[in-house]
Design a protein around this nucleic acid. Structure first.
Lengths: 338, 338
DNA sequence: CTGAAAGCGCTTACAG
DNA sequence: CTGAAAGCGCTTACAG
């Protein structure tokens, strides 16, 4: 097999010009059906494959989307990625995916690498660490569309896709209150990311609405690392008022909490009621099953992919500085039963 | 900000040739430090970014690896991907990732897309459905390295990375036997994929070694879809001999089995002992915790990435037609206690 | 409906 | 140590 067939090879064999071959391959209107068929047949026979580098260089467009996620191996993120991939591939876009591993430095280097790779657009969920956002200027300066999902950032002319985290935090907390919890602990992620701050704000609003007092020990800001569960448990044990409900900012950590508390002979939900966040499959597996907030990751991925592609295609359904809010949903299970 | 700075822009400003700029940027030995510094400083100042399409076109190399997985949103696969990404990015490689969704047609179209994208190598875990492998000839014909991991295929000159599934299947089954199981059911994935066939072969070998009879009802070939758990349960209920042990080919399905059996008032492990496969985190969450086989997905990803990059770099530690076997490990938990 | 030619932005063998 | 020039494989405005 020839290692490399170009349009020149086809042109020579067919005794036409390279331009004609190129136009035939791209189904250009001005080429006769007969010529097109001839070209396509030979291209097929010779195993011709277009050289994207050349085409991209010429067209200044790559049909590629860049994606940066904090971690590839997280249930939520891989679900979102599945959605993005599905949307992208059905529109003929490739995906270059990289992970920041929650590090600002790695996020910056990923950003550069994706810029260099000539992605047509960039989809980002921010790292925990990131506090400076200058690296995204490389994209905005060059007018390359930028979209943030889940861990978002409010930047001019960037689309953001997320759920209403404040409302979701409110719903989770209100549910605990309605189940008679009086002294609720909120285990949050880092406030650097607004998703976690917003959940906390919802938590506080619910307390206020039901006239429950709030003291600083009821907030535990963590990095949601399950290996550091011991700190969380210590906090619970040392709490001046007996904690009777916990709202955890994600299911992985919530499940870990339940397991550890059970080891200490706490009864869930009798002694302490627990609600998580995300509707990760583990929330259904644990005993008692975990109440949580459903976060539609796959739909988010589909929407993110479609939005950005529509934007690239110049369709109108995405305005600049848009924000898309997905619906969350309270899911009540055994871990918060009265 | 200029939308696009090229080496010509730098050359003009510095009154040197584009060649000199290019060599400076690539840290070529023959350029004086003074010139290099000058070029680098201006490149930085003007926000110059190399155009990869042009460089790739010229170099016939993209520093990009293609990856095709059956599903992005699976614990095991996303763990492997995290490993691949980590290895790739530390060597300056990008990753183009796509999912076949277990479909042969999609796998073929992904293969073509990745070939067109000019990946330097392709890493594949096969779709359930795939029975014809001709689409990989596009790569082997062009001498583009191809590596299979987990769901592998024995093709000439391709590296495969996997565990010894037969030995792992044997270990899982032997463990059940040692826990006094006499009539063990094996819930397998599709035999189209050798990983599942091999686990089954190990299962049978263990039965033979311990002189346990085998009848056809002890094998249930499924697509491991947890939504079809009802068929599995029916099979168990209708079994002529009372099943006292189950070896399931993955944890997700094993967990689903345990849950459903518990609903029917079976006691696990007293009535039926269950062992899974993969050491998915859910195996630790379920009650009783699930015995399983540890499958080092992250390490597999690291190895896959490093192997292929070493190969591309012309290092010698990867022979043609190589096969790398990772260590598995039996993990004993509550679901198989005597 | 088709061809000749320029150009996308790099890299590098060759020459000095 | 540096420059001039060719070429990687496409696409398309222009001309006919």
């Amino acid at each position: 097999m020839s290692q490399k067939v170009t349009i020149y090879d086809l042109a020579k064999q067919l005794k036409v010009s390279p331009g004609t071959v190129s136009r035939s391959l791209n189904d250009h209107a001005s080429i006769s059906k007969k010529t097109k068929d001839k070209v396509l047949a030979l291209a097929n026979e010779m195993g011709y494959r277009t050289n994207k580098f050349a085409a991209n260089l010429r067209n200044q467009k790559s049909n590629t989307l860049g994606v940066i996620v904090p971690k590839l191996n997280s249930y939520f993120m891989s679900t979102v990625l599945a959605g993005i991939e599905s949307a992208a591939s059905s529109e003929g876009y490739n995906l270059i995916i990289s992970q920041s591993l929650e590090s600002e430095a790695k996020e910056i280097s990923n950003t550069k690498a994706l810029l260099d790779s000539g992605v047509d657009a960039l989809l980002v969920s921010l790292a925990y660490e990131t506090t400076n956002y200058d690296h995204f200027n490389m994209f905005t300066n060059r007018k390359i569309p930028l979209l943030f999902f889940d861990r978002v950032l409010d930047l001019n002319n960037c689309t953001t896709i997320l759920i209403n985290n404040e409302a979701a935090g409110f719903d989770a907390t209100e549910h605990l209150i309605k189940q008679d919890c009086k002294n609720i602990l909120h285990i949050s992620g880092s406030f650097t990311r607004t998703v976690y701050r917003d959940r906390y704000l919802g938590f506080k609003k619910a307390l206020e609405k039901y006239n429950l007092p709030f003291s600083q020990e009821q907030l535990l800001e963590t990095d949601l690392d399950p290996t550091k569960i011991e700190d969380v448990i210590q906090h619970i044990l040392k709490s001046p008022n007996k904690i009777d409900g916990i709202f955890v900012a994600n299911d992985t950590m919530a499940v870990k909490c339940v397991k550890e508390l059970q080891k200490l002979n706490y009864k869930i939900p009798e002694d302490i009621k627990v609600i998580g966040f995300n509707n990760n499959p583990i929330s259904e597996i644990i005993n008692p099953s975990l109440s949580t907030i459903n976060y539609p990751g796959y739909e988010m991925g589909i929407l993110a992919g479609q939005s950005i592609i529509n934007h690239l295609n110049g369709n109108i359904n995405l305005q600049s500085a848009n924000s898309i809010i997905l619906k969350h949903k309270l899911i009540i299970r055994e871990s918060t039963l009265k």
